[in-house]
């Protein structure tokens, strides 16, 4: 096929290639837009709840992949950023009475500020040091939330005011569904574009060799902290979605296990690709709900799959899919 060969620079600029790509995208978006009406009525709100969670996890995973997969900085504390976003949005809406879009942007900004702060030591900490520091950050956020009761409502939890689109004829679930899925799609699109812009290329250069990147003129201070801030902002917005979906916040929703789950999503889906993050997040959100009888097996499955994935398929499920596609495209070869 002629479209497989890139002949001009412009060919490389298209995000979606060929008729097949466009039709898959169109079907996907159409399906997402009509789900609240086409899915079976029975248990609809539960299905919508899972898809809203999926949208939140996709958002976290895309942000985390920008940090880990693209920039090569491991974070094991992303549940901390999600928690900051969740509580920030909840408090901004209930204490200050802000409308939800302002509260969400505020949650992203506050989370990004924390991301910037965590990113500062990342300038000096590399590899394992940084991993342990982010792990400590995630645990610290959890401990602060459990102990600082005026902020988090303590044991009683923090009730979250529900958002409203002001559109008649839609239930609350359906309104939140459109907001969450729309935001996730928008942020994924931004992620795709970020990854192939000069910023994304700078991230990849830092991942492959930060000294070489610095020599060629990449400002390490700026791009490393930027990567952390962007990633944290994604997590913050996802936190705001989770706050809306749960309606009631408790620190237990943001433990170390969540951080590990986010990490497992991008490893299983594919490090260093936005599509991989989306696939991994969707898969790991659905699985626990359909395997609820095997809940205690989940850490074993996650751990085993992470090891297996890195050992035999470091590019993740998305990388495997690309390879299968290429195999059939060039088939008799």
């Amino acid at each position: 096929m002629a479209t497989d060969l890139l002949e001009r620079y412009e060919d490389d600029l298209f995000l979606v290639k060929g008729g097949a790509g466009w039709s898959v995208l169109a079907v996907l978006l159409l399906a997402l837009a009509t789900f609240p009406f086409t899915l079976p009525r029975v248990g609809l709100s539960y299905l919508l709840f899972i898809i809203i969670l999926m949208a939140a996890n996709v958002t976290v995973a895309v942000g985390l992949n920008l940090l880990v997969g693209y920039t090569g900085l491991i974070s094991l504390g992303h549940a901390g950023f999600v928690a900051i976003g969740a509580y920030a949005s909840g408090l901004l809406m209930s204490r200050l009475g802000l409308p939800w879009p302002v509260a969400w942007v505020g949650a992203a900004a506050i989370s990004a500020a924390f991301g910037f702060l965590v990113g500062l030591p990342a300038l000096r900490l590399t590899g394992p040091y940084l991993t342990v520091a982010t792990l400590g950050f995630g645990i610290a956020v959890y401990q602060v939330l459990t102990n600082w009761t005026e902020l988090s409502g303590g044991r009683m939890g923090l009730p979250v005011a529900q958002l409203s689109l002001g559109v008649g004829g839609l239930s609350r679930d359906q309104q939140l569904y459109y907001v969450a899925v729309g935001t996730a799609v928008l942020l994924s699109w931004i992620g795709y574009n970020l990854a192939r812009s000069h910023i994304g290329r700078a991230f990849v250069a830092i991942r492959d060799s930060d000294i070489a990147a610095e020599v060629t003129g990449v400002n390490l201070t700026w791009y490393k902290t930027l990567s952390f801030a962007i990633s944290a902002a994604y997590a913050g917005i996802a936190g705001a979605m989770i706050a809306q979906a749960l309606r009631h916040l408790e620190p237990q929703a943001f433990t170390f296990l969540e951080s590990i789950t986010y990490f497992a999503m991008i490893v299983i889906g594919g490090l260093g690709t936005i599509s991989g993050a989306i696939i991994g997040a969707a898969l790991l959100t659905m699985l626990p709900h359909y395997l609820s009888g095997f809940r205690q097996w989940l850490p074993i499955i996650y751990g085993g799959v992470i090891m297996l994935m890195m050992a035999i398929e470091p590019t993740g499920l998305y990388g495997r899919w690309l390879r299968i596609k290429r195999y059939f495209k060039v088939w008799p070869l």
Partner: peptide, 15 residues
């Protein structure tokens, strides 16, 4: 990649 593999082992063992 190798650090991620040891993380996987940690998760597996604790499970």
């Amino acid at each position: 990649g190798r650090i991620v593999i040891t993380l996987g082992l940690a998760l597996l063992l604790s499970g």
